[in-house]
Write a protein that binds this DNA or RNA. Structure first.
Length: 825
RNA sequence: GCGGAUGUGGCGGAAUUGGCAGACGCACCAGACUUAGGAUCUGGCGCUGCGAGGCGUGGGGGUUCGAGUCCCUUCAUCCGCACCA
């Protein structure tokens, strides 16, 4: 072996060794507690980036640590392999999406392997493989059978330049992510999953996730957007129609002075038909269509509207209320219609002022003028109901429930809960996705396939032309189908599923990735699920994590799973930055993991990334920091090699006796480090401080080299401990040095060390001496000193005598084993 | 506008329960070794002051013997949501 730290040969050697000896292969084992450690699987874009490296380095420390602590660890990896980039590449380079994707997977897998992560590669999966997407389709079928998949016409994002429908996540600030053209809304028949049926459970069960960051839970709560209120109908004068509104403030219903419909509301045309206002109304509606969604919903957009000429009747008091249409009422929230109470809603107030609509105060409070004329803004706070007939005198809260009760008793309306969450649009007019397993039969209509008819295979021979429709439309062999019900001619659905569907259950599949008849075995998921630790970017806080939760609850409901939440603990890692901004090709600040690993090795890359910042926080890339990590590994290399021969035959005893002070100090440091690293990694995921503790131990060991008559047993214990503690972070170098010291077995299969409490007992400790809370001196005292004795020793210190002379000592505060504070005036 | 997070040396960061602010690392400075050093080792390194000392965790105020940590207030930056009825 060469004397230089040759990271390349060392890393290759041990990666091969681990693989050949199936080190990380796991199966269910009831003798051990299980631990399911999962990192979000990547999209196979072709190359690993630093964000991946960070994600998987964090996950690997957890996996290796848990494994050394006696857990049976499941740590799998796979590919979120369907999606638009493959199709774009196909159009651009004339390669088939499957070819492109498979090549990327191969390449990224090789890159991942050079990181030395402890994956059980036998469980690898790719969502684009028929043996996987068969079961993505199975999920669709089950949802359909349970009434949770349905088709409806809906407004979707349409890019006029790419001639295609875009996913919500591809619309950035109202424009197409690829070509920056402004996105339009288009009405299309689409498939949806009824996630709204689970809204309340998705909200409530956030309480059951103490291991999730508060931030993510808050984001999900906002996204679900539950609001309590009531829904009621107002008859429209002269028509056999009524308009339904949703409000959270039924207590202000006597303050309604106008009504508003969203411009897209189906009643608009009907109620303005034949009136003098008709042309103004249709002009306004037309104008709204030409304004982008973005401009329309901007907060600072001026409120605009027109009177429709129609009137509604307030069912509470029979009053005639004019009906307007206005830009500030949105069709896709609530009922698309509101009752407007300008006195107690700021938006209505602004609108009423602009169009000279009366304002009527119905909530009285000392904080607000009693006369509408004196109001400069709406009053939305608490108070007493006034001008509200029988309800006068009630507080807001009582008023809300009383009005709801009255409405329910009189068949006017009822209390309702409204969610902001919408159903999940899963149709995509794309080729590279899992086909929706449905056919359209002339006789039977929409027919969903049954599970024995799966998979619906993606045809391979497809021409990609950006036509605005799924390329599958032009594959006759695909579209021509027979109806499973009547055997007659049928046409196959050509839309594919959103890739988020594929990633909503992959963690279940890992538990038994080779099942052919079922998506996963019940025994396997009952053993492994839920995921104990899930790690990934915060950008998935809402979509992926919400969809995965929805799927898990659904699978629980149909008895496929025994858990209702998929991820017990969630760690959202920060971004990797360079020059304070996200690495990106356009900014030219990308650091290639491949290059870093080639130059410094995977151990250095991992060590730097884990040391530079705690995992949740953003990490600033530093080439000099990488150098520093590399230097540290070189120091460890030299340190261990220097001692390797001399400690070879030394036996580390179970108990140490009669150690001199230096040896005791070293042993103290060894065991203090075990304690610190165990707590930092196990309890808090503070890898940066764990590493710094190991560095301290290394520094102490280096300093110990100068001691006369070194105690080699203590040195050996320290060195071995250091290698074991460091191995989850930098496994290759630790494995190499472990064997160099002629140790048995593999370092990553060692039992995680426990600290010896005896070694942490100190005879003498240092006490801080303060006067008036300021540190003035230090004192070395026996650890078991009494408080009295400690006070006396402190008062006798020269410095303290000087500082307290001529002063009255009022109080002496003693914090055992820490400090003495003398309060003197 | 609402919600959340974060502010500590030249830089990344540490301080876990209210108890020595700046661990560990980077950069920098000095020295050793050396034909050489962008290798390695040793020492120094918050600001200020010759010194004793004083000041110091975005700003201001408070609680406490004692505050980076608790309370009030204010500013800045970042993230999420955004006319949600």
């Amino acid at each position: 072996m060469s004397s230089k730290y040759d990271h390349r040969s060392i890393e290759e050697k041990w990666q091969k060794y681990w693989e050949e000896n199936h080190f990380f292969k796991v199966s269910e084992d009831t003798d051990k507690p299980k631990y399911y450690d999962l990192e979000m699987f990547p999209y196979p874009s072709g190359n690993l980036h630093m964000g991946h490296v960070r994600n998987y380095a964090i996950g690997d420390v957890v996996a290796r640590f848990k494994s050394m602590n006696g857990y049976n660890v499941l740590h799998p990896m796979g590919w979120d392999a369907f999606g638009l980039p493959a199709e774009n590449a196909a159009i651009k380079n004339a390669t088939h999406p499957a070819v492109w994707t498979n090549a990327n997977i191969e390449n990224m897998k090789q890159q991942l392997k050079t990181m030395g992560i402890s994956y059980d590669w036998d469980r690898e999966l790719a969502t684009c493989k028929p043996d996987y997407y068969k079961f993505t389709q199975w999920m669709f079928v089950k949802l359909y059978e349970n009434g949770l998949a349905y088709k409806k016409k809906s407004a979707v994002n349409w890019c006029p330049s790419c001639q295609t429908v875009l996913a919500n996540e591809q619309v950035v600030d109202g424009a197409c992510e690829r070509c920056e053209a402004e996105v339009e809304k288009k009405q299309l028949e689409q498939w949806f999953f009824k996630i709204t049926d689970y809204a309340q459970r998705l909200l409530d069960d956030l309480e059951k996730l103490p291991g999730w960051p508060e931030k993510v839970k808050t984001m999900q709560r906002n996204w679900i957007g539950r609001s309590e209120g009531c829904q009621f109908s107002m008859p429209i004068e002269g028509l056999d129609e009524s308009m339904t509104v949703f409000t959270t403030r039924p207590d202000t219903v006597f303050g309604v002075t106008y009504m508003v419909l969203a411009p897209e509301h189906p009643l608009v045309e009907k109620i303005s038909a034949g009136r003098p206002e008709e042309s103004a109304v249709s002009k306004f509606v037309q104008g709204m269509k030409n304004i982008t969604e973005l401009a329309r919903t901007a907060t600072d957009a001026e409120k605009e509207g027109v009177f429709t000429g129609a009137y509604a009747v307030n069912p509470m008091n029979g009053e005639r209320i004019p009906i307007w249409i206005a830009n500030y009422v949105l069709m896709d929230y609530g009922t698309g219609a509101i009752m407007a109470v300008p006195a107690h809603d700021q938006r209505d107030f602004d609108f009423a002022c602009k169009y000279d609509i009366p304002i009527r105060v119905v909530i009285k409070s000392e904080d607000s003028p009693a006369d509408a004329k004196d109001m400069t803004e709406a009053y939305t706070g608490d108070g007493i109901m006034v001008n509200s007939e029988a309800f006068n005198g009630l507080e807001v809260q009582e008023g809300i429930s009383s009005v709801i009760k009255y409405m329910e008793d009189n068949n006017i309306g009822s209390g309702t809960i409204n969610f902001r969450l919408r159903d999940w649009l899963i149709s995509r007019q794309r080729y590279w996705g899992a086909p929706i397993p449905v056919v359209y039969c002339e006789k039977c209509g929409i027919v969903c396939l049954t599970e024995d008819q799966l998979p619906v295979l993606l045809p391979e021979d497809v021409e990609f032309r950006p036509s605005g429709e799924s390329p599958l439309n032009y594959v006759e062999s695909f579209t021509r189908a027979t109806c499973p019900d009547c055997g007659g001619e049928a046409r196959r659905e050509t839309d594919t599923m959103d890739t988020f569907v594929c990633s909503s259950w992959y963690f279940d599949r890992y538990c038994s990735p080779n099942e052919v008849d079922v998506p996963f075995s019940k025994e396997a998921v009952d053993y492994w699920m839920p995921v104990d630790q899930y790690i990934g970017g915060v950008e998935h806080a809402i979509l992926h994590l919400m969809y995965a939760r929805f799927f898990t609850k659904f699978l629980y409901d149909i008895n496929m799973l025994s858990c209702e939440e998929p991820f017990t603990n969630l760690l959202t890692q920060g971004m990797v930055l360079k020059d304070s901004s996200k690495m990106s090709k356009s900014k030219g600040n990308v650091v290639s993991p491949e290059e870093i690993i080639r130059t410094y090795g995977a151990d250095t890359a991992r060590l730097f990334i884990l040391f530079a910042s705690p995992p949740e926080r953003d990490l600033e890339w530093s080439d000099q920091g990488v150098e520093g990590a590399y230097r540290f590994l070189n120091r460890i290399w030299r340190l261990v090699r220097e001692y390797a021969r001399s400690i070879q035959d030394i036996k580390v005893p179970d108990t140490f006796e009669n150690l001199n002070n230096d040896a005791r100090d070293l042993r103290f440091k060894t065991h203090a480090t075990i304690k610190k690293v165990t707590e930092d990694v196990g309890d808090r995921f503070n890898f940066n401080t764990a590493i710094s503790a190991i560095m301290e131990l290394s520094n102490t060991l280096t300093a110990y080299k100068d001691k006369e008559q070194p105690d080699l047993a203590v040195v050996k214990e320290a060195l071995q401990t250091l290698l074991v503690l460091l191995s989850p972070f930098t496994p290759h170098i630790c494995e190499e040095l472990w064997h160099l010291c002629q140790n048995e077995g593999s370092v990553c299969q060692q039992k995680w060390p426990e600290y010896d409490p005896q070694a942490l007992i100190q005879d003498e400790i240092e006490i801080v001496v303060q006067v008036m809370g300021k540190v003035r001196d230090h004192l070395r005292v026996p650890a078991e000193i009494t408080e009295e004795e400690l006070k006396n020793r402190a008062l006798q210190l020269e410095k303290i005598k000087e500082l307290t002379s001529g002063k009255q000592i009022n109080k002496i505060i003693v914090v055992p084993r820490k400090l003495v504070n003398i309060v003197a005036k």
